[in-house]
Design a protein around this nucleic acid. Structure first.
Length: 244
DNA sequence: AACAATGGCAACCGCCACAAT
DNA sequence: TATTGTGGCGGTTGCCATTGT
């Protein structure tokens, strides 16, 4: 009753900081009353942990921090507090925000450019694209590991309904997310990506089968290679794979 | 210059886990 | 064992600044 909400004023910040410096924050619920703040304890705790704590690091995230977030998110998912615990001076809220506003988009763009680079399907005579088509009646092209894996899951469980949220989850799934390289950190498409020969191709069955040069044995891309390998096995033909 | 659309971020909300009673 | 209080977490909202038309 009568509690203030919304943005904190500098005066409120000052009161909270000096009270915590003097008495600590043993009991958040009791704190605002003791400090003379018209805020709920929860609001005080959030303000302190996300903004006023002396060990908070302000300013833009460094490239190393962003990379750490991406790697940890790959391992931990949306466990922001666990991720924050590994990045000194950053809060879970801040990391969550930077993920949703910057990194998610970056990853999406990067994935599409990488998918475009290693897009499948085979123009060599050894590859039987017809059988690929037959194995997938709805679409005659498999454009990405993500798309493929979702389609395969629908094969194993045709009744399964996928919501858009689920699809988005698949889209951002890192199962086939390759190691990031320099191009990831650019907001612009690289010249190479922009000129990617299959970017505008209409007949995607004619797309050349290539692995990106950056792929190295032992990288996470190996998982997707296994995937493609299995797919070709299913399709009944196997293209020549490059040596590493 | 005015308005609309978009993005970034701080703050709030609802839920959950856990400890104390 | 059930209830209550508290802190913590992740998802969401809403404000404000910036950008586009």
């Amino acid at each position: 009753m009568g509690l203030k909400k919304g943005p904190w004023s500098p005066e409120e910040d000052q009161i909270l900081v000096s009270h915590i410096q003097q008495y600590g924050h043993g009991n958040w619920r009791a704190l605002p009353k003791q400090a003379g703040l018209l805020r709920c304890g929860k609001s005080c705790r959030l303000r302190w942990t996300n903004y006023l704590r002396p060990d908070i690091k302000r300013g833009n995230f460094t490239r190393e921090e962003e990379e750490t977030i991406i790697n940890l998110h790959e391992m931990l998912g949306n466990r922001w507090s666990a991720i924050a615990a590994k990045i000194p001076g950053r809060t879970d809220n801040e990391i969550k925000n930077v993920w949703h506003t910057h990194l998610k988009k970056k990853i999406k763009n990067y994935q599409s450019s990488q998918d475009s680079k290693r897009r499948t399907i085979i123009s060599t005579p050894k590859c039987d694209t017809k059988s690929l088509e037959n194995s997938n009646s709805e679409q005659n092209i498999v454009t990405s590991p993500q798309q493929c894996s979702s389609e395969m899951s629908s094969v194993t469980d045709p009744s399964m309904e996928k919501t858009s949220a689920k699809n988005e989850e698949m889209e951002y799934s890192s199962e086939y997310f390759p190691q990031i390289d320099e191009s990831f950190w650019s907001d612009e498409l690289s010249e190479e990506d922009a000129n990617c020969p299959d970017a505008n191709i209409e007949d995607k069955t004619q797309v050349q089968f290539t692995w990106p040069e950056s792929v190295e044995k032992g990288s996470k891309v190996d998982d997707s290679m296994d995937f493609w390998y299995n797919l070709f096995i299913r399709a009944g033909d196997m293209p020549d794979l490059p040596e590493f």
